[in-house]
Each structure stands twice: as C-alpha cells, then as structure tokens.
C-alpha cells in the first residue's frame, strides 16, 4: 500500500518534470541564443556575451517598436475591457430577445482564421479609405480580442446572483450606486483576468498586426521580419525580453490580486465596534 503510493507519487513527479522540460526547453534555447556571441546559434554555445542585450536596449528602432506594441496593447486592453464588461452582462446576466443569437455571433471572430481576418480588415480599411497604421491595428485586435475577453468576464458573471442587484434596489439604491457598490466589486476578479488576457493577446499577436499596422511595426512583426532577413542574436534577445515582460505582467497581476485579497481579509478580521 505504502509502496504503491510512493510509486504513484514518483510517477506524478516524473511526468510533471517531463512536461515542464518539453515546454520550457525551446524557450530556454531561445534565451541561450540571445546570449551567444556568434551571429548564428549553435550548440553548445562557444562564447557567451550579453552584447546583444545591451545593443537591443540601446537601439532606437527597438524602442520604437516596443512603444508601438505597448500603445496598441494598452489601448486594446482599456477598450476591450469596457466593451466586454457590458457585453458579458448581456451575454450572461440579462435575458433578452436575441440573446442566444448574440451568444453565437460574438464567438464567431474567435474561430475565424486570423490571417484571413487580418487580410479582410486590410481590404476593408482600403475600401473605406483609411490609411493603415498602429491605430488601425488596435481596431483589428479588438475584433478578435473583445470576444475572448467577453467570454472570460462572462464566466464570472454566470456565478453572480441576480438577487443581489434586486435586493440592493429594494434597499433604495440607484442603478449607478448598485453598479459601483455591488456589481463591479463582485465582478472585479473577472474584469482583472479579462484585462490580463487582453494585454497579453494583443502584445503577442502577429497575424492581425502583420496586415493592419501599415508602416508601423509591433514586436512580433519586427521579430518575424528580422528572422526572414537580417537575423542577429538581437532577435532571440528581444524574444526573451518580451517573454519576461509578459511573465512579469502576469506576476504583478497575481501579486495585486493577492494583495487585494489580503486587505479584504484584514478588513474582515473581527474589529471591536
């Protein structure tokens, strides 16, 4: 009995380790490539250098693309969270005529192949005479990201008891007061995860940006272009930085959530009246 438990534990650990290695080994290789002195990556690494990291940091070109990516992801996050919040209420909270159709239509863009969606949007921008730039990319990202964020927030909305809003109104609260004091605070965790999703999906998006940024360039686009022509270890260096940045966004998000929960628990501790 004891032995079989130990064996099962061992197998679980071994499998977990195997999966982690399979997932992270390629990323680690990329990171190593960025730290190699030679122009082309070979294993084992002959000579180490942080040269490409410093060069990437100093490059004005890199600064521009990072700023573009940040601007696009920032605006996309803000707009998609606002739109998706109310979209999620319509999706999961209220019963209205045409809700079932809406629930299906809103998911459609997620299943549409992104390169085709990007090309279609580019053709459409041309048709209406809009010059593609990073601002049109925001629009393109929204088409795909708003449905995803709507779904993420809707999951939280499904767990929301509508009786709470009814009770609040019954206690004399106005709609705005209810939104501020009851609905939003309870849905906050959903809104937070929606915002994280929006940022990361926009930050890492390549197919939509490729067609719709015009002369501007985001980080994934730039990486792709450099891999096709003019490769230097700056490409894996920036790839690594991008990954680390995204990971820290997640970590900071997690830390904020933890802090909020800690504070709520502290508030809830029995206080003498």
């Amino acid at each position: 009995m004891e032995q079989s438990v130990r064996r099962a534990n061992f197998l679980v650990w071994a499998w977990t380790l195997f999966v982690l290695v399979v997932v992270y080994l390629p990323i680690a290789c990329g990171a190593l490539a960025g730290l190699s002195k030679s122009r082309y990556f070979g294993f084992p690494v002959a000579a180490w250098s942080t040269d490409w990291w410093t060069r990437a940091m100093a490059s004005i070109e890199v600064k521009t693309i990072v700023e573009t990516s940040l601007a696009v992801a920032g605006v996309v996050t803000l707009v998609s969270v606002v739109v998706a919040f109310f979209g999620a209420l319509a999706f999961a909270r209220y019963d209205w005529k045409g809700r079932r159709l809406y629930q299906k239509l809103v998911l459609l863009p997620i299943f549409f192949p992104q390169p085709v969606l990007g090309l279609a949007l580019l053709l459409w921008f041309n048709a209406v005479g809009v010059q593609p730039s990073w601002t049109t990319a925001i629009f393109a990202h929204l088409v795909w990201i708003v449905p995803v964020v709507t779904l993420v927030i809707a999951i939280r909305v499904y767990g929301f008891d509508p009786a709470l809003e009814e009770a609040a109104a019954d206690l004399g609260a106005s709609r705005l007061f209810i939104l501020r004091e009851v609905t939003l605070p309870i849905l906050w965790p959903g809104v937070w995860s929606g915002a994280l999703f929006a940022f990361l999906l926009s930050w890492g998006n390549f197919p939509l940006s490729l067609y719709t940024t015009g002369a501007d360039s985001t980080v994934p686009e730039w990486l792709y272009a450099k891999m096709v022509a003019g490769y230097t270890p700056m490409v894996p260096a920036i790839g690594t930085m991008s990954t680390l940045a995204a990971a820290s966004v997640l970590l900071v998000g997690g830390a904020i959530a933890l802090l909020l929960r800690r504070r709520a628990a502290l508030n809830a501790a029995p206080a003498e009246g």
Partner: peptide, 10 residues
C-alpha cells in the same frame, strides 16, 4: 457588536 467587522460569508 464585534460582528460589525466580520466577513458576512464567515
């Protein structure tokens, strides 16, 4: 009265 600051779910 000490319940004033208690979390309602507890």
């Amino acid at each position: 009265r000490s319940y004033y600051g208690k979390n309602v779910m507890q």
